[in-house]
Design a protein around this nucleic acid. Structure first.
Length: 294
DNA sequence: TTGCATGATTGTGG
DNA sequence: CCACAATCATGCAA
């Protein structure tokens, strides 16, 4: 009775809960996850890749389970509320024989009962919302589902990165190309798609991390530089037969990012590392950062 | 179990 | 919208 005013206004929180349940497809008509599918589609469109076959169905199954529980509970409450109301009405009717009972009193009693049950409903809605949120975060937050790319995919990306060290900003088309290549090489595992945004992410991360600690990446850089150099050398060898150039490797210089301050000083250890590689296996290759043979 | 590697997201600036 | 920087959350090896 005391808390009559608590529930009287249309309660913004309840509306929020209702809206969310509706949006998630928990309340509302039972259909094969129209809203749920939309949610997933939206997540996928925004760059978060959801593995379609397995994850999607699992998500839907769980959501359907939540929906089932929600509806049965709701129905139970509804029923209980009605039963209780009629019961109280009968009692009042009984009492009306011994004392006068005003319609106002009846109304008041009914109101109290309904409010009581609506708070219970509210709790149900709240916990359902929580369950859905947890489910969503479990299944739709890509960060929780991070998988390392396959070795081959990383290889492809690294090859491009180190062969375009002077300007490691692939164009849109280049990104698409890379994404395609990576998709092909990512045969094993669940993931079958490699998107442009993943390529962008990768290059973004790579650039910043390379720049942050160039030393750490030297070995890798030399590896890929040598790799591209040797392939390029083969290509060029077909065209240019007199490869008399035998200068020691002029290491990757002039790594330019958008920031001016980002520049490789081509002075230190890498020269020795490079020459060790080049004197061994690729003595004739004199490469540029962007992979061109000089 | 811990520390580092790494893919994705968020916030900021151009 | 893009790149960057910082940060998150997970994967993985020591």
């Amino acid at each position: 009775m005391r808390r009559a005013q608590e529930e009287d206004p249309p309660d913004p929180q309840l509306m929020r809960l209702d809206n969310m349940l509706l949006a998630e497809g928990v309340s509302g008509p039972e259909k094969g996850g129209g809203a749920a599918a939309a949610t997933i589609a939206a997540a996928a469109a925004s760059g978060a890749i959801v593995d379609h076959s397995v994850e999607n169905s699992e998500y839907r199954a769980k959501l359907a389970q939540i929906r089932r529980i929600y509806h049965t509970e709701l129905e139970k409450y509804e029923q209980a509320c009605n039963e209780f109301t009629t019961h109280v009405m009968n009692l009042l009717r009984e009492q009306s024989r011994t004392r006068p009972i005003s319609p106002k009193e009846i109304e008041r009693m009914v109101g109290i009962i309904h409010r009581k049950f609506s708070t219970i409903q509210m709790q149900l809605k709240q916990s359902t919302c929580e369950a859905v949120m947890i489910l969503r975060s479990r299944f739709l937050d890509a960060r929780r589902k991070r998988r390392n790319f396959s070795k081959q995919a990383t290889e492809v990306l690294n090859e491009y990165f180190y062969s375009h060290l002077s300007n490691p900003y692939p164009s849109e088309e280049a990104k698409e190309e890379l994404a395609k290549k990576c998709s092909i090489t990512m045969s094993q595992g669940v993931r079958t798609t490699f998107t442009v945004s993943q390529v962008s992410n990768w290059f973004g991360n790579k650039r910043i991390r390379y720049k942050k600690n160039i030393g750490k990446f030297q070995e890798e850089a030399n590896l890929y530089a040598a790799k591209t150099a040797v392939t390029a050398a083969h290509a060029v060898a077909a065209a240019v037969q007199n490869s008399q150039t035998n200068s020691p490797a002029t290491p990757n210089s002039g790594f330019q990012m958008k920031d001016e301050d980002f520049q490789l000083d081509s002075s230190d250890s890498k020269s020795t590392l490079l020459s060790s590689i080049f004197t061994g296996a690729y003595p004739t290759a004199c490469f540029q950062p962007d992979g061109r043979i000089q």
